[in-house]
Amino acid sequence: MSTKNWPLWEIFVRSKNGLEHRHCGSLHATDAEMALENARDVYTRRNEGVSIWVVESKNITASNPENNGELFEPAQDKVYRHPTFYDLPDEVKHM
């Protein structure tokens, strides 16, 4: 029986310059170097990327969905953060 499993890594790929890196999946690798190589072979076989980030999954801190109420709902009624909140005469175009 293997003593230790290869850790899990999250893979982010930039599809072309000008765009952000996007999460595209995960894979197993022993270290960051191998994770990059594996990501190249697994997630960019069809020319999908120009840049790769790898992060070991355990290093990601995620918000807890149970707190979604206090985290995200307070933003829902802050309509004044959106441009449509403000009334402007039609003559003012493009503002």
């Binding site: 290869w6 894979l27 197993h28 690798a29 190589e37 594996n38 072979d41 697994v42 076989r45």
Partner: peptide, 8 residues
């Protein structure tokens, strides 16, 4: 030996 290596 692993899927990742297989693909490589």
């Amino acid at each position: 030996p692993t899927l990742e290596t297989d693909i490589a």
